[in-house]
Design a protein around this nucleic acid. Structure first.
Lengths: 213, 213
DNA sequence: GGCCCAGATGACGCCCCGTCATGATTTCAG
DNA sequence: CTGAAATCATGACGGGGCGTCATCTGGGCC
């Protein structure tokens, strides 16, 4: 642990560095998360076991349960992590957007960029369906959905757009983005612009507005 | 087995009735399927075990494996069953539809009716997400998707509609139908007409075409 | 240095899984 | 009708993952 050298303990003056206990706790939690990401990517969610994950960290099996209650909970933690990273991006788009169209375009573009980057970083070598059979609404993920919902309400009202069934509309938009996003990841080369354009046109104008081949 | 009385074995003349072996085999397979539907509805897919299912049939645990390899396989069989029942309905809509709009309206309406009926018959008492965490593309389900794809291609061409990215478009339509359908099931009373109208307008004209509140 | 406690450890009991040797019942040949 | 063969239901069993818990280790603190 060479970092000890850089942080001489108990030196005169301030030492805000958390104690070793706290540091290993953070490190362990992160190690489990990293291992889980790798294991889910390699084996798929269903096939992965808690012991596959913990084995990869070198920790003992019991230690896993000091941090997470189950495989589901680690998965949710990973999903929450993604949502937590995406939320500010979405928020920024919402703030800078002048009208609904530019908000939608920005948000979808941001989401697809995010998707492509995640897809890259997980180094998935199995069908996405096996790695993400869930798409469960964890708190953070739900928060993202809520944010989309709220942003829709705000921007549409600002546009003086006629009132529509927001619940259905937001659900439909998210569904389109999700599905087109998935299909986008299956094509080579990955065409974020094309996919985003398609999704935006689909939502704003339906079939007649779609790009022609 | 009173039915024996109605079908005297080896009587003179024809007896096309399959032997007893065959009959119990069919009955067992069906019993397992029925039990599985009930158990999935009550416990949710994840919590359900093979033994929960087989216990409900009164058969021995080993017998289960004479018919299905795993819980997943029974679930897929149930999904296939649904798809197999829905396919002809979809086909009929496709055949009778004159243009894309009427095909779409008919298909979505049929799907939502089907959804509502299934929802009823499964007597689900837990969140749909726990009962259907999968939505796996079993062969029959995939066939339905393919049929939608093909019908879109056929009807759009017949309409002399400009060529669009059919893969994205079909995926987006299915996504909208699925999501709006799900949300429809969560509302009381269940409004099939309203949901179908929303989905159709969404697909045909996007946001501007949506019904106003 | 010595005490205390957070937390790491891995053995343990539990339960579910899938298999398989066994036995019961049906089918069929003579 | 009878006995052999085929079929398949049965439930006991070994295997393995799960979650717990008594125990031990070492960091925090005086």
């Amino acid at each position: 642990m060479s970092n000890i050298a850089y942080f001489p303990a108990r030196g005169p003056g301030e030492d805000n560095r958390p104690g070793k206990r706290e540091r290993t706790k953070v490190a362990n939690r992160q190690a489990i998360l990293d291992a889980a990401r790798a294991v889910f990517g390699e084996l798929g969610y269903e096939a992965a076991t808690v012991r596959d994950i913990i084995r990869r960290t070198g920790l003992a099996s019991g230690t896993f349960y000091n941090y997470y209650k189950s495989k589901e909970e680690v998965f949710d933690a990973l999903a929450d992590d993604g949502a937590r990273r995406f939320r500010p991006i979405l928020r920024a788009e919402s703030d800078k957007a002048a009208d609904f169209e530019s908000f939608l375009r920005g948000a979808i573009r941001a989401y697809f960029d995010f998707l492509a980057a995640e897809h890259e970083s997980w180094r998935i070598n199995r069908p996405a369906g096996e790695v993400f059979p869930h798409a469960r609404a964890t708190p953070e993920v739900q928060a993202v959905f809520d944010e989309v919902h709220a942003a829709f309400a705000k921007v549409l009202e600002h546009d003086h757009a006629p009132a529509v069934d927001l619940d259905y509309f937001a659900a439909a938009c998210i569904a389109v983005a999700r599905e087109v996003g998935d299909k986008m990841l299956e094509r080579r080369p990955i065409d974020v612009d094309g996919a985003a354009d398609f999704a935006v046109r689909m939502i704003l104008g339906g079939l007649p507005a779609l790009p022609r081949l």
